[in-house]
Design a protein around this nucleic acid. Structure first.
Lengths: 229, 229
DNA sequence: CAAATAGTGTCTATCAGACACTATCGA
DNA sequence: TCGATAGTGTCTGATAGACACTATTTG
């Protein structure tokens, strides 16, 4: 039996939610699009393997990203090579340029989630991606995780775009502003401003110490997806 | 490399939160207390193994319980036998008598969670239990999962006890009543009543179709635990 | 009747959502 | 000045929490 990690790496770019995908260089599914990932080595745990694969396949440094275990996929027939259990990870990144270094990262690219069709991904990666998306959407409600999509300092409008893009809704800018500024230790004002091409400059914030968002930013009742067990 | 499942099975009994533990019959940790679980067979997935082990080791039928994957534990040194990856599951059960059938279930017993000391559990099961408890506590806020701790029909006071015992807080009975009755499709009145030894009979309810609880039952801001990644 | 538990009503502070309005920039 | 974006104020309805009060049972 083998153990792999698969990575759902999400970012917001050009007001669309993107996932990092690679083109597979080996069989099975050679040439097909898949989530980045690979085998866990004998003396590392899956967390270490996720960090290593993220660096090798995408050039990203997981220590600077939000990276959490998603869940495991264990169906005996999920990999044609035989029994391969995969531990999936969810990573959230700001809109970083992909280093096209001398690694396998040259095969990695950001793809808009909405552009993916049903059979576009290898293995059971469509399911893993769906689970990752739902986890990310749910955690925006009750945690301060939205800041993981933002650069070290960001404006409230940028933060609002994260919510809008990840949830696929539009939010009232004025109510959103009031809400996030009032939430306990969600944002810390830096005292600096960003001067845009046009319009009034926006105050810059950085993420506060809170991990739990209180009060939560609830999606409207009607927008709640049906929970999967 | 081997794959196991470990089960965090929780129930509320005598106004205390209990976890189902077994006494290990084999090495390693023979005679020591541990979570129920066992090896995943070659042609089953971990969900099937969790159901099978639940039946074999505890006599419970997982199809009638809430059973969900919790997360996986992959540290190479977590099992002295070598590399053993464990997929942990969380199960929530009403206060059922444990069938002491001809299976290994004779080693299973309900133990109050609060009675467990730091080194009482084998392997990394203390950590798995802690993760399971936090998952259960969090899900009571935003889902209708509390009904999984209740028998098919139950009173609102019984449901409130679930929240109080799992969270370790006390809740205002009157506000709780108003809140759960008003939540969308959380509870369905059966039209019947339960006559107690003393006091006014209570209306009996069964779980409604909702899986998401809206509005959520938020733990007070100050009671939110620090999130773990 | 009293004791005990179930359930309703009411008040207040807070919050969400709608939306008018003001502020500050570049051109 | 205008256009554009940032940010504040204000109103209304819903909700949470505190808690007085009523309802229905047994003994």
């Amino acid at each position: 039996m083998s153990l792999t990690v698969d990575l759902v790496v999400l970012t917001v770019r050009d007001d669309r939610l993107h996932v990092l995908l690679i083109e597979r260089g080996k069989e099975p599914f050679r040439g097909k699009t898949a989530l980045p990932g690979g085998f866990v080595r004998s003396r590392e745990d899956s967390d270490a393997a996720a960090l290593r694969e993220l660096a090798e396949e995408t050039g990203l440094d997981g220590r600077t990203l939000h990276l959490e275990q998603l869940r495991s996929y264990t169906r005996p027939d999920r990999d044609p090579r035989g029994r391969v259990v995969s531990v999936a990870y969810l990573a959230l990144a700001p809109d970083l340029p992909l280093p096209v270094a001398g690694t396998d990262a040259r095969r990695a690219r950001w793809t808009p989630v909405a552009d993916l069709g049903p059979g576009d991904l290898a293995f059971d990666h469509a399911r893993i991606l769906a689970d990752g998306l739902e986890r990310a959407r749910a955690k925006l409600e009750y945690t301060t995780l939205a800041t993981a999509f933002c650069p070290p300092t960001f404006t409230i409008t940028e933060l609002r775009r994260v919510y809008e893009v990840v949830w696929g809704v539009s939010l009232d800018a004025r109510n959103f502003h009031r809400k996030v500024v009032n939430a306990d230790d969600f944002l810390v004002a830096t005292g600096t401003r960003r001067v845009p091409d046009v319009g009034r400059p926006a105050a810059l914030y950085r993420a506060g110490g809170a991990t739990v968002l209180y009060p939560p930013m609830l999606r409207a009742a009607a927008q709640h997806p049906v929970a999967r067990t």
